[in-house]
Amino acid sequence: MGLDIRWPIGLMFTLIGALLTVFGALNRSGSLSLDININLIWGVILLAFGVLMLAGAVRGGKKPPTA
């Protein structure tokens, strides 16, 4: 099938990761769990995962499904 699943996975986690990172950075007090800013930390991890997936999709040489 003509869709590389890494595109939607990458896009979704980049989006959610960025959202959590920004939310965690701006709203420190509301992001604490056991005294760590878990939204910020986990947001960065999701972001990294998302970007990795996108990189894989690009290297795979497939064009975005919309193009």
């Binding site: 959590l20 939310f23 509301g30 992001s31 604490l32 878990i38 939204n39």
Partner: peptide, 10 residues
């Protein structure tokens, strides 16, 4: 118990 808003949604 452990998830603040944000992580809770996830």
């Amino acid at each position: 118990k452990y998830c603040p808003a944000g992580l809770l949604g996830l």
